[in-house]
């Protein structure tokens, strides 16, 4: 009881610290910027007038980010699954291999005709190679290039496409986040100890049920925090869509800045909106982490992912 209260007090203090920190930083920046905008002063009226425009731009950012994020999650789950299946614990579930040795034939394959088995194993390996290649290519190239690439391909082949920039942008973000989420899923699935799979199978659980009741519940606990962080990262990365002319937060802010010459005000708004989104979201991540903690075990942090 006392410890719960203490914890709540501590978390309230943490929130206060965060807000105070941001306020101080903003104050410091405002003080410095006053040297530059001091003569004209900060135009609050302008900011107020820009709210509806920025509201639409923010909706567009959420729209593009969310679509790409959930599309990428589908890709990521499959890619992560394919890449994790090579490792021993998952291989035991997915292919029922009787041992860790890769050359060994899975038991169900030994039952069917050898020709079919070879064909099937070929397909399986091809799928894995493709998943590997996809992740390597996407993680090895700048998101900026991927966005311009997608846009260029679309504009050359479908110049009359409606909302071409937005489509190109969402496609690029989807393909990009799919690779990163694939790595998150792979890491999560591989982190579940092979002994867990063995114990699940030893009490007679089928492959699917072992996945459903033993592997996934443990993997998801590890995956949720980095997966939510991926959303935050992707939302920030979506600012790159301005280069192909999508009027999301950053693109809109830049247009307005140069249309009205209220450069400082416009970018102050851009910055403020991102912070209003990302700070509460990262608090949510932390809350989710605490909520699903396994008693007696900490949550292992997974490495940060970068986009650009």
């Amino acid at each position: 009881m006392a410890s719960a209260l203490q914890q709540e007090g501590r978390s309230r203090a943490r929130v206060f610290d965060t807000i105070a920190g941001i306020a101080l930083t903003v104050g410091a920046i405002a003080f410095v910027m006053d040297i530059f905008v001091g003569r004209s002063g900060f135009d609050f009226g302008y900011v107020q007038g820009e709210i509806p425009g920025f509201f639409d731009a923010t909706k567009l950012t959420f729209y593009a980010t969310s679509l790409a994020y959930f599309g990428g999650m589908g890709i990521g789950f499959l890619v992560g699954w394919a890449r994790a299946a090579r490792s021993a614990p998952l291989a035991r579930i997915l292919h029922d291999r009787s041992a860790l040795v890769d050359e060994e034939a899975p038991r169900w394959e030994t039952r069917v005709d050898t020709g079919v088995a070879i064909l099937f194993s070929g397909v399986k390996h091809t799928v894995r190679r493709i998943a590997d290649g996809y992740v390597e290519i996407i993680r090895g190239t700048p998101l900026f290039v991927q966005i311009v690439f997608a846009w260029s391909v679309l504009i050359v082949n479908y110049p009359r496409l409606n909302q071409l920039e937005l489509i190109a942008g969402i496609v690029a973000l989807t393909v990009n986040t799919g690779a990163y989420q694939g790595e998150i899923f792979r890491a999560g699935l591989q982190t579940v100890h092979s002994g867990q799979v063995e114990a699940a199978r030893a009490i007679g659980l089928s492959r699917w049920r072992a996945m459903r009741y033993v592997i996934l519940p443990q993997a998801l606990r590890l995956i949720i925090p980095p997966l939510t962080n991926e959303y935050i990262g992707l939302l920030k990365a979506s600012s790159l869509l301005l280069v192909i002319g999508v009027q999301e937060i950053t693109g809109y802010g830049r247009s307005e800045a140069f249309r009205t010459f209220k450069v400082f005000e416009a970018f102050a708004m851009v910055t403020g909106i991102y912070l209003l989104i990302t700070i509460p979201l990262s608090k949510v991540v932390h809350a989710v982490e605490m909520r699903y903690r396994i008693p007696g075990l900490g949550i292992q942090a997974m490495g940060p992912q970068t986009h650009v």
């Binding site: 002994g195 867990q196 030893a202 009490i203």
Partner: peptide, 27 residues
Amino acid sequence: RPDIRPEWARQQVGMVFQSFNLFTHLN
């Protein structure tokens, strides 16, 4: 043998491991 599911065989014989392997997310 092929016509017996290995899951069935495993239900007949329990196993206790060196490293316990209790499901960490369950009490």
